[in-house]
């Protein structure tokens, strides 16, 4: 985890985006030429209900400094009610991450619709800032140079 001195440490943030809303929202942020910090890595899934808690946990174990779970607003899901399930599972993840001894800020749940490009950019900025404050994840693994 030794970074070369002088260079600022950049967090690595994993984002799960649903195909219909938040991924389109991320697209919209680009179309609108909004600045999005380059800390984010997006994984597209068809629906936020597809995000198995295991994916989130694996992301954390792989060393992501934060994991974002994003999807359509409640009631807008393209698969009837799958984002209700996401919300339910997120509640479990929150307790798990907290008990494990990771900071609760390493886990985020946001609803972003296809037209909310600004919200997406703002969210990534906010997460990056928070993570920079609390530092790298204790699970982070990097090759030593």
């Amino acid at each position: 985890m030794e970074e070369s001195k002088g260079e600022e440490w950049e967090p690595k943030i994993l984002a799960f985006c649903c195909n219909w809303c938040s991924y389109a929202g991320a697209d919209a942020a680009g179309l609108e030429r909004r600045q999005v910090p380059p800390t984010i890595r997006v994984i597209r899934v068809m629906c936020s209900g597809r995000i198995d808690p295991a994916f989130v946990l694996m992301g954390l174990l792989e060393g992501a400094d934060a994991v974002l779970v994003t999807g359509c607003h409640i009631g807008d899901c393209h698969y009837v009610n799958a984002n209700y399930k996401t919300r339910n599972r997120y509640e479990f993840l929150k307790e798990f991450v907290d008990e494990l001894g990771l900071e609760p800020e390493r886990l985020w749940l946001r609803w972003i619709s296809a037209s909310e490009g600004s919200l997406f950019a703002e969210m990534v900025r906010e997460v990056t800032e928070k993570i920079k404050k609390i530092g790298p994840s204790p699970l982070r693994r990097e090759w030593k140079k």
């Binding site: 946990l57 792989e62 479990f92």
Partner: peptide, 17 residues
């Protein structure tokens, strides 16, 4: 994978919560 905590344990604890 050599994670700090293996997926087996993480998932078992998670599923039993």
């Amino acid at each position: 994978d050599s994670y700090a905590i293996s997926m087996y344990n993480v998932l078992r604890i998670f599923h039993l919560m």
